[in-house]
Amino acid sequence: MATEHQAPKRVAIRDGLLTEPLDDLAKVRLQGSRCRHCNEVTLGRNAICPNCGGIDMDPVALADHGELWTYTVVRHKPPGDYRGPEPFKPFGLGLVELPDGLRVVSPIEGDVDSLKVGTPLRLKISVHHTGAAGEDVVAFAFAPRL
C-alpha cells in the first residue's frame, strides 16, 4: 500500500496579509483594502479604514512590483522570536513604494551593499518557516527586478 504524501498546510504569517488561496505561491499577492469613502489603500484585510474610519472597504490585490523608497541593513540579529536563517545573516529592510499608493515595510533580498533608493523591485512570496503545528508559514519579501 502506497503511503499518501500530504503537503503541509500553508498559512499566511499574518491573517489577512496575503491573497488566498496559498497553494500556488506564484499567484499570491499582498492583500490590500481600498476605502470607498476616502479612497485610501491600506495594507492587509481591513474592515475599518485606518485613515477615515470608514466601514465600506473593498479588498484589493496589491501590485507585485514597486520601487525602493528607503532602506537600511539590519546588521544584528533582531531580538525575540526572529525566524530568519540560522546563523544570522545581515539583510536589507526597506519601504517599498507600490503603484497602489502605499509604501510597505519589507525585507529586501539580494546583496546588502548594492541597495539604492529607486531600485525596481518585484514581490517574492515564499515559505518563511515551519510553524508550531508543522504548518508552512508563508511570508513576503521584495527582490531587485532583473
Partner: peptide, 25 residues
C-alpha cells in the same frame, strides 16, 4: 506584532535608519 518579530522588522533602529536614508537622499 508577532509576525513583524518573526520577519525581523522589530528593531527600532531600523526605522530611524530608514528615515535617515531618505533624508540623505
Amino acid at each position: 506584532s508577532p509576525w513583524q518579530v518573526e520577519m525581523g522588522m522589530s528593531l527600532n533602529p531600523s526605522y530611524w535608519s530608514m528615515r535617515a536614508r531618505r533624508h540623505m537622499y
